[in-house]
Write a protein that binds this DNA or RNA. Structure first.
Lengths: 214, 214
DNA sequence: ATTCCAGTGCACACTGGTGTGTAGTGCACA
DNA sequence: TGTGCACTACACACCAGTGTGCACTGGAAT
């Protein structure tokens, strides 16, 4: 089974070759590592390269073939997430509709992919949080704009600091995403209603807005 | 200045002896370490024993004289915080008033000390999060009771999972505490109003309740 | 069949944090 | 004046994670 070598290796027994293990280009592995890292680091920002590698079904050494350092991996991950989130926020911000419809659209767009962005919050608290903090600026800014427009048109309470509302809105979306994933008792629609409720929208209006959700 | 020794020590230059450095009983130092650790770990659950020691104005070795291990320090800290929080929650829960007044009382009691309990959330995410998770059960349970009573009397939306409300209520209190400490734009009264608003209490009622706040 | 190359297995050096041992210091109290 | 004791200074062993080097593998393309 194993050819004999002077240092007696153990042969490939690590990964069971599934049907998807064929025709695996370098970019495929790289993307898989990124996807898995998104998941793993989203749950525990202190997870090591070993944990990520194991979750991706590769060896630690392989991760270092694609990313020269842990910081590089984290930065790449952050940039990707920020780019996607920025696209959503910019698009929603560009629409000139009423602020409440805009918020409903935002939540409808963010909700299905919310779990992918938990990593943004998690990484901020991780070892390299300082290093990537600057990358998150655009997202914070766009979200702040959205909150500002919400306050300007009385969707949110004017007397509350916009920064606080952003923080809570941000957090609430991911709290709901977590809740939804862990016990499944809260559907996407309920989440939409909840978010709007939490943000101060009267329930009747929230329910009406929810009709525009996913 | 320095007596000469065969290993040439550096003499005590570390801590400038302030007026409070006299008559320093062992318990005083221990308590100071705990207080400082509450602050430091609340900000960064991954802070090391060295960071805590430095912040407390002692040497790392001294911390180990009072706490045999980092886990022991973290556990002590958690137990202390849980005990205080439990006392507040039990007292509030025992009062047989209306649920909304009860919630107002809770927030009024928790608010002034909220920053001290950020450590509960932070430690949950830290290295020993798993180890102390069980200790936080009583707090979660009491908070869940409070939310349940809130739902039973229509203070909170009945259709939302109680667990979700607990999570958000918990988080909101500390988000507000953070906000208050960092920019000072949000006073305790505003926080009371905000919390109640976020939890779904109509603004008019929230303002009335705020009168009972600190 | 040979070459190419993404990935593996295992070595190592380095770092930073934990936890301990031990000798020495300075203050308080007797 | 000396004894106790909280604290210090500095040593070390240990461990887990990072990052690297290198020989080797196994599948695919030529």
């Amino acid at each position: 089974m194993c050819t004999l070598f002077h240092y007696t290796p153990v042969c490939n027994t690590g990964v069971v070759p599934t049907e998807s293990s064929r025709v695996r280009s370098m970019n495929e592995t790289r993307d898989r590592i990124l996807d898995v890292a998104l998941e793993v680091l989203g749950g525990n920002p202190d997870a090591g390269m070993g944990d990520i590698a194991a979750a991706a079904g590769v060896v630690r050494r392989t991760v270092y073939l694609h990313f020269p350092s842990r910081l590089d991996l984290v930065r790449t991950l952050t940039e990707r997430a920020v780019a996607e989130m920025t696209a959503v926020l910019t698009e929603v911000n560009a629409a000139d509709g009423a602020a409440d419809a805009m918020w409903a659209a935002f939540i409808a767009r963010v909700w299905p992919v919310a779990h992918r962005y938990r990593v943004l919050l998690a990484l901020r608290r991780g070892e390299y949080g300082e290093a990537i903090h600057g990358l998150l600026g655009p997202v914070d800014e766009l979200l702040a704009d959205l909150v500002q427009r919400g306050q300007d048109s009385d969707v949110f309470a004017r007397h509350l600091p916009a920064g606080l509302l952003s923080q809570i809105a941000y957090g609430a979306v991911f709290a709901i995403a977590d809740s939804d994933r862990s016990n499944g008792t809260l559907g996407a629609r309920a989440a939409t209603i909840t978010s709007l409720l939490l943000l101060g929208v009267p329930e009747t209006r929230a329910i009406a807005l929810a009709g525009t959700g996913p």
